[in-house]
Computed example of a mutant assay.
Amino acid sequence: MQFEHIAGVGTRVWRWSRTSGTQPRLLHAAKAAVAAVLAWFIARHMPGVAAEYPYYAPLGAVVAMQTTVFAGIRSGVQTLVGIALGIVIAGFTMWVGDPGFLAIALAVGIGVLVGGFRVLGEGSSWVSTAALFVLLVGGAHAEGYSLGYLVQMAVGVVVGLLVNFLVFPPLRFWDAEHRIDAVNQVLADHLDGLAEVLAGGERDERAWDRQQDRLDRAIADVRSRVSIAHESRRLNPRGALRGSQARLEQDGARFRALERVAWYTTDLTELVARSGPVSEGLGRPDPEFAEPLATALRELACMVRGERPEEAGDDAIAEVERALDASRENPSHVAVTSAALVAMRGIVESERRATNDLDTRTGPSAFRNARG
């Protein structure tokens, strides 16, 4: 019994470490530590003047140890280019005059100007930093220091890239997929909240502004993570594994659907909970349509969570359409309900297009997989 309890705790800890992103962070930290140690060892055995500056090699290894192989290559190259430009700028300022206030001012000023070019990327901040190091640390031995600095940083970058490439090169699919699932839950909660407003709740425009801001930030975060997932496959030997391309395409499809659903949900929010261009200033459609609309929104929320198939959303929308067809009410009330129907239909179609035949935890396909 005690063994089963310990095993259960271990399983929960393992799941938490995976869903929270702790596992890839631990692996990344271990690889960075190994790369820094290897770079330090190699740097101490470098020939010539470079051996006098071994402490820059571990720094180069850390610079190259990025979350993806491609990002590491980009960061390493940009850093080395930035350092080389900084060395050139330091040489120019030393040619102008002895190191002093004027030389430091020129080095920093020119370094910041040159570092402003976007093409330098990660290397932009290293231009002025390298120029200052050469002036203030190198001093009278600036030439030897510059060579040792650049060579040892290059050694560290190469070691870091090799470690990142050869030891479980990262694929960031899980991070993107987990975040897509989380934002699906945010969208479903948003739709449930709109249903509550329709069922009789009071409008609170500030609260819906905060909710919309939360949704916008979540979508932006997912966009960034999906982009990183795509980048993680570039120049990655694990990217050639069977199924990785299909998985990437599925994640992209789910994210595009997520954006469309968020757009339609924002439209519904404007109609129902915020602007309220509806009858009697109550901030919701005519009571004749309120109940079927609220029911439809709840069904859509369940569909987004994966608790219902797409057909449930179709049936709920059909109820609203029947109420609309039988109505003889004010045309403005009908217009608001019609606009809401367009948005709800867009949510159903977006989910249907994105989750068809996908093996995911949320979305209508999850309902079909569980039922099967």
Rank of each mutant, 00 (worst) to 15 (best):
A90E: 12
G91N: 14
M94T: 11
V96E: 03
G97M: 14
G97T: 13
D98L: 12
D98R: 13
P99H: 10
G100V: 06
G100I: 11
F101C: 00
F101D: 15
L102W: 15
L102E: 12
L102D: 07
A103L: 04
A103K: 10
A105V: 13
L106R: 08
A107L: 05
G115H: 02
F117Y: 15
F117D: 13
V119C: 09
L120D: 01
L120I: 05
G121T: 01
G121K: 06
E122L: 05
G123D: 01
W126H: 12
V127D: 03
V127M: 03
S128W: 13
T129N: 10
A130G: 06
A131V: 03
L132K: 02
L132R: 01
L132D: 07
L132W: 00
F133C: 09
F133I: 11
V134P: 02
V134K: 06
L135P: 03
L135S: 05
L136K: 01
V137W: 08
G138D: 05
A140F: 10
H141M: 05
S146T: 00
Y149K: 00
Y149A: 01
Y149D: 02
L150T: 09
L150A: 14
L150R: 09
V151N: 03
V151P: 03
M153E: 07
A154N: 02
A154H: 01
G156I: 06
V157P: 04
V158R: 02
V159E: 07
G160L: 09
L161M: 12
L162Q: 08
L162F: 15
V163D: 07
N164F: 01
N164D: 09
L166M: 11
L166W: 04
V167N: 01
V167W: 12
V167S: 00
F168Q: 15
L171S: 02
